[in-house]
């Protein structure tokens, strides 16, 4: 295994452990917003799509890139906005 892969695996494993720990006793009320918020975070895939853009050079690559960019941007933009809208409903009234 290359040192780079080892470093990546370490980071991945620790990220998994943090993910397990960071979600604790969540009230059921927040299950849906929390799922939606986590959904928005994997919109980070857009950054991966941007890195992909640096390597594609032909027309089939461009088409694939455009679709991937569409998907990734939709995930990240829509994900955060819809979570925000959900959470806006929780403010206490009266």
């Amino acid at each position: 295994m290359s040192p780079l892969l080892l470093a990546d695996l370490t980071v991945f494993t620790l990220a998994l452990l943090v993910g397990f720990e960071v979600i604790s006793k969540v009230p059921a009320t927040l299950h849906t917003p929390l799922m939606s918020g986590a959904n928005a975070i994997h919109g980070v895939v857009l950054i991966g799509v941007m890195l992909l853009a640096a390597t594609v050079t032909d027309i089939s690559g461009y088409i694939l890139l455009a679709i991937a960019a569409f998907f990734g941007a939709m995930n990240v933009a829509g994900g955060y906005v819809v979570t925000d809208r959900m959470l806006a409903m929780f403010r206490s009234r009266r």
Binding site: L16, G19, V22, H42
Partner: peptide, 14 residues
Amino acid sequence: IIAGGLVGAAGAIL
């Protein structure tokens, strides 16, 4: 890797 792992684990717990 970080954000993906985080969501993978958090999503599993959820």
